[in-house]
């Protein structure tokens, strides 16, 4: 099976590899997949107060297509509002990277990673809001 040139490009020069501090309240972290399934993606999104994704980082354990899917997603979501990001379907990734049918699960995982990261950010914000309410009440 030959890889598409775009998969090779993302695999060879992955965009936005790395990590943000997990405890930064503006960062949402999504970890999806499992080692025994051969794919684990960690996607981190730095999101501003208005819900706009300022920056993204990823780390992926998985095949070339999984690495390429997550790398592409970091580029795709940057600058988007979380509502737009949540609307991203895996088919966009499949199309961009020319993934063959056996690799579609990689794109599904990347879509799940976006949702997991945003939901984690919302949870953080909820906690932070509660925290500040509490602090306000105490004061």
């Amino acid at each position: 099976m030959a890889y598409s040139s775009k998969v090779i490009d993302h695999y060879t020069n992955p965009r936005n590899v790395g990590s943000f501090a997990k405890d930064d309240p503006s960062v949402g972290t999504g970890v999806v997949g499992a080692p025994e399934c051969g794919d684990v993606m960690k996607l981190q999104l730095k999101i501003d107060e208005g819900g706009v994704i300022e920056d993204a980082r990823f780390k992926t354990f998985g095949c070339g297509s999984a690495i390429a899917s997550s790398s592409y997603v970091t580029e795709l979501v940057k600058g988007k509002h979380i509502d737009e990001a949540l609307a991203i379907k895996n088919t966009v990734i499949v199309k961009e990277l020319n993934l063959p049918p056996v690799k579609i699960h990689c794109s599904v995982l990347a879509e799940d990673a976006i949702k997991a990261a945003i939901s984690d950010w919302k949870k953080h914000r909820g906690n932070a809001a509660e925290q500040s309410k509490k602090t306000a009440a105490e004061a």
Binding site: V31, V32, G33, A34, E36, K42, K59, F61, D112, A116
Partner: peptide
């Protein structure tokens, strides 16, 4: 490995076997 979340977790001292993986 620099790109692997598992390597990062292992170096942070997380036991990968104890992690609840999301596979939905």
């Amino acid at each position: 490995r620099e790109m692997s979340p598992l390597y990062e977790m292992a170096r942070e001292g997380i036991d990968l076997k104890s992690v609840q993986w999301r596979t939905d």
